[in-house]
């Protein structure tokens, strides 16, 4: 299990865990299609995280991105 802050940029990753106790953060991520089982590509980390799921790009701040763990 790896945090997004450590994975290689541009490689497809499978989400395994969402580590947050905030309902809202969880809901947001799920609404954007980010949940255990879905695959994503991390495109950049600064100034914001940009994640691509399918054909959707999403920008996230560091704290929100920190709750995503991939295989």
């Amino acid at each position: 299990m790896n945090a997004l802050s450590t994975v290689t940029i541009g490689q497809s990753q499978t989400v395994v865990h969402l580590a947050t106790d905030q309902q809202n953060v969880m809901r947001k991520l799920m609404a954007l299609g980010i949940m255990p089982g879905s695959s994503l590509v991390l495109e950049q980390r600064f100034p914001s995280y940009i994640i691509k799921v399918g054909h959707t790009r999403t920008a996230l701040d560091g704290e929100t991105a920190a709750s995503i763990f991939v295989e």
């Binding site: 809202n24 953060v25 947001k28 991520l29 954007l32 914001s48 940009i50 959707t56 790009r57 999403t58 920008a59 996230l60 701040d61 704290e63 929100t64």
Partner: peptide
């Protein structure tokens, strides 16, 4: 402050 998340069209 609320977290930031936004779809990038």
């Amino acid at each position: 402050s609320g977290g930031f998340y936004m779809e990038v069209p």
